[in-house]
Design a binder for these strands. Structure first.
Length: 513
RNA sequence: CGCGGGGUAGAGCAGUUGGCAGCUCGUCGGGCCCAUAACCCGGAGGUCGUCGGUUCGAAUCCGACCCCCGCAACCA
């Protein structure tokens, strides 16, 4: 089967933080899992680089805008190695192909009659030098500059007929009861759409804000950043490609747009796919983008997963509070696998969760050092000391189709795990592995193989436990790839040897209050 | 009466066909001694937000109220 997964593209106005890392790692975990069960995977991420904030930030830093973006793209790109990400596509919205795709997408929406020009009023606070929306105002004034009169700026922009898609969106939701996960978020977007939709502006005056993709056929306007950015989910697949342009554009008009081989068109192979995003992106991904796809005549996304936020010590992370957590620092301190483990195990997939070093270290010691690490050490040591040779089997990975047949008869360890993974319950899937390891400890305590004399007897106890560890090791791969690999190597030898400890216990001498 | 989520042991959480209130961490006691001061067993600790109702019986159903947190449109 084909499996396409994409994260949202982080906006390059700030350094990567732990929230980005969590989103990438969850997506990576799913990508690795699907590869494991035999799917062909396309995994996309990248950076969102247009818009006013970027333009202003670069200007303030005295840098060329693209040069500024290059720096940030490199910072986000560096997460690949640091976090062990396995994406095969890193798109930047300043890539030439993406720019062309956004313009092609625009034309399709225009052809559907969904783009129109409208005079548009913006309230502008001279004190802040910022546009203000009504919801930001107090008594019709800027709360920061109550004595300054607001200026009214009239600007003519292009608008997208979002309102036209209320019914189609509600139909989409109705016909796809699993379209948005979790269900709370699905309800949220449903009621938002039910309340009625207003068209949104999709362009800016180029004279005021030139850092955007030119609107086709109108040099005075550039696209509003959201309109261009969302298109990345298909442009990264090579859209618009040969197969599409034949009927939509006419071959001569855009013959240079096709990036993919006619017979191996990634867009055709992989779209529609699974999208993941943070809860701040709910509206854009599950409503705006879906309506844009409908307008352009493309299939809507397969499913959207909406993840929760991470707080730091119970507080919202922010630069001004100085409590942001840098994922690179975590990796440097604890290693990539432990970092991934925390973000997949302690951080709940869909609800908000809290990060603290105390929680991190507690979890690390309890489940990695004392749990799986210690178990591997005690079993491998007993096997080596007693000179016991084993012949363990690789786990048999089964895809979802075959699984259905098996579920009836054997509600096994693996089936259970598979089920949790298909529900995106990463934390609970890991829980099944941890439970298995704990069961092994209980089993060993009961049998006491270290008291036995006969090699036969000892082997009878240890071999099944070693097999369990190997099974765990295989299933650990999506979460902790390095550890998984080490364990598989160690427990696939005929004579298993003790080796180095996987997760040295952390000394938690300084206790949190 | 804007919409939604939540209030269960010191902390974090599970618990809807209503039936002796569970898990992880921490804590206390015991055991073991193969292992990373690890592992195993047991104890203590909760008026399940408040009040009222239905019921033989409610964390679980109904009503009222209190508190916390999201969303309430152009925010990338």
């Amino acid at each position: 089967m084909k499996f396409y997964i994409t994260t949202t593209l982080p906006y390059v106005n700030a350094d990567p933080h732990i929230g980005h890392a969590a989103e990438f790692i969850k997506a990576d975990c799913l990508a690795r899992w699907h590869r494991l069960i035999g799917d062909e995977v396309f995994f996309n991420t990248g950076t969102d680089e247009h818009g006013q904030k970027i333009y202003e930030k670069a200007k303030a830093a005295g840098k060329d805008t693209l040069e500024y973006c290059d720096e940030y793209a490199a910072k986000f790109g560096a997460l690949k190695e640091a976090l062990g990400l396995t994406y095969n596509s890193f798109i930047r919205t300043t890539d030439k192909h993406h720019i062309e795709a956004a313009q092609a997408f625009w034309k399709l929406c225009e052809a559907s009659g969904d783009i129109y020009k409208k005079q548009y009023q913006v309230k502008y606070c001279v004190g802040c030098e910022l546009e203000k929306t009504d919801s930001e105002l107090v008594d019709g004034k800027c709360p920061l500059h109550p004595n300054a009169e607001l200026e009214l700026i009239d600007e003519e922009n292009y608008f997208f007929k979002f309102s036209k898609y209320q019914k189609p969106l509600l139909d989409l939701y109705k016909n796809n009861p699993e379209f948005v996960k979790p269900s709370e978020r699905f309800n949220e977007i449903k009621s938002f759409v039910e309340r009625g939709l207003q068209d949104f502006s999709i362009s800016r005056l180029a004279s005021k804000m030139p850092w955007g993709i030119p609107v086709p056929g109108d040099e005075t306007q550039v696209m509003y950043v959201w309109f261009d950015a969302l298109v990345n989910y298909v442009s990264c697949l090579g859209w618009p490609c040969h197969c599409e342009r034949v009927n939509k554009f006419g071959a001569e008009e855009s013959s240079d747009l096709c990036l993919c081989n006619k017979d191996e068109c990634n867009y055709k192979r992989y779209w529609p796919g699974l999208q993941v995003c943070g809860k701040d992106n709910l509206r854009q991904q599950t409503a705006m983008w879906q309506s844009m796809l409908m307008s352009a005549g493309l299939p809507t996304s397969k499913q959207v997963l909406v993840f929760g936020f991470i707080t730091a010590n119970g507080q919202k992370m922010s630069k001004s509070l100085g409590n942001t957590i840098n994922p690179i620092d975590l990796v440097a301190k604890y290693g990539v696998d432990a970092t991934r483990y925390f973000l997949l195990r302690e951080i709940k997939p869909f609800s908000d969760s809290d990060f603290s070093f105390e929680k991190f270290e507690t979890l690390y010691n309890a489940e990695l050092a004392n749990g799986i690490g210690n178990l591997a050490a005690r079993v491998s040591n007993l096997l080596e000391k007693n000179g016991i040779e084993t012949n363990l089997k690789k786990i048999n990975f089964v895809g979802p189709l075959e699984l259905e047949k098996e579920t009836e008869e054997s509600f096994s360890f693996y089936v259970n795990f598979h089920l949790k993974m298909s529900e995106y319950a990463f934390d609970e899937a890991i829980g099944i592995l941890i439970k298995k390891a704990a069961d092994c400890d209980v089993f060993l305590a009961e049998k006491k193989p270290w008291k036995m004399d006969s090699k036969e007897e000892i082997k009878k106890v240890l071999e099944p436990v070693a097999q369990d560890i190997l099974d765990i090791a295989y299933l650990l791969a999506p979460f902790m790839p390095t550890t998984s690999e080490k364990l598989i190597k160690q427990f696939s030898e005929k004579q298993i040897k003790k080796g180095e400890s996987l997760f040295p216990r952390l000394d938690v001498s300084v206790k949190g209050v």
